[in-house]
Amino acid sequence: MLLIHCPYCEEARPEVEFAYGGEAHIARPVDPSTYSDEQWEEFLYIRSNPRGRHHERWRHSHGCGRFFNAVRDTVTDVFETTYKAGEARK
């Protein structure tokens, strides 16, 4: 079970309090109607799935309830950092 540092609670908490939220920094377009079918497909379904550094979203569902972002190595599962939603990509 991972320990995840919640940037809002400012402490490491057990994984069972969290829910995974998929890849981070995929913002919903302000006006989706301006997106072509290809752009919309990209937004909906295409993910980077890297081996190594992955920017991803987590929610401290059974804690403070906040969504936040994390950088995790998909090979080792080691978290490099976590940061609040809305902060610049790290």
Partner: peptide, 8 residues
Amino acid sequence: MEDYLQTE
């Protein structure tokens, strides 16, 4: 709903 509210 929390997701949209907090992140979008």
